[in-house]
C-alpha cells in the first residue's frame, strides 16, 4: 500500500505494528489452547473431544504468529515504512472516536437519539455543513429507522429515557 506524503511524520512504523499484531495473535492462540486443554483436547473413543480442533487451531496460530514475529524482528526493512502517519491517524480517529462515543451513548440514550447527535456532530465537525443541511439528514435518517423498525417490523432497538417519556 502506498502511504501519503513525505512531509508527514510517521506515528508508528510497519515493523512495530507487525510485531504488536503478531504478539497479539500469539496471545489469543495461547488463550485458545489453554481453554481447549480445559475442555479436553484429546481424541476420545468416539472421535475428537470438544477441545481437539480448537487446540490445533490455536497451535497453528501460535506457530504462524511466532514466524511472523521472527521475520519482523530480524528484518529491519519495515522500519522505514510507516504504518500510519500523523495526519492519517488524525483522520482515522476523526471517524473512530465519534463512532465509539455514539456506541457508548446508545447504551444510555438509545440508538435513535444517539444517531441524531452523532450524524449532526460529524456533519458539522468534519463536513462543516450549515445547520440547514445538517438538520434534515440528522433527523430524517433516525426517524426513518424508527418508523421502519419500531412500527413496521416490530423490531425493538435500544431506546432511552426520551422514547420512554413518549410511551415507547
Amino acid at each position: 500500500m502506498e502511504h501519503g506524503t513525505q512531509n508527514s511524520d510517521p506515528v508508528v512504523s510497519n515493523r512495530t505494528m507487525e510485531i504488536v499484531v503478531a504478539g497479539l495473535f500469539a496471545l489469543v492462540a495461547l488463550v485458545v489452547m489453554a481453554d481447549s486443554i480445559r475442555v479436553g483436547n484429546g481424541w476420545g473413543s468416539d472421535g475428537p473431544k470438544a477441545g481437539y480442533f480448537p487446540f490445533y487451531v490455536g497451535l497453528i496460530m501460535l506457530v504462524s504468529s511466532l514466524a511472523t514475529l521472527a521475520v519482523n524482528i530480524w528484518r529491519h526493512s519495515g522500519e522505514r515504512t510507516a504504518f500510519v502517519e500523523k495526519h492519517q491517524l488524525a483522520l482515522v480517529l476523526k471517524v473512530l472516536v465519534p463512532s465509539a462515543v455514539f456506541v457508548i451513548l446508545t447504551a444510555f440514550l438509545g440508538i435513535y437519539l444517539s444517531a441524531v447527535l452523532f450524524i449532526a456532530f460529524f456533519m458539522h465537525w468534519v463536513g462543516k455543513y450549515p445547520l440547514k443541511t445538517i438538520l434534515p439528514v440528522a433527523i430524517l435518517v433516525p426517524a426513518g429507522l424508527f418508523v421502519m423498525f419500531e412500527i413496521w417490523f416490530l423490531v425493538p432497538l435500544p431506546k432511552g429515557p426520551v422514547e420512554t417519556m413518549f410511551g415507547f
Binding site: V95, V103, A115, I119, M123, L157
Partner: peptide, 25 residues
Amino acid sequence: SIIAPVIVVICAVGAYTVHNAFLDI
C-alpha cells in the same frame, strides 16, 4: 462526511438486530 455517519448508524442497527444484543455493536 454525510454518508459515513449514516453508514455507521445503519451498521450499528444491523449488528444489534442479529441477536438483539448491545455488545454486538
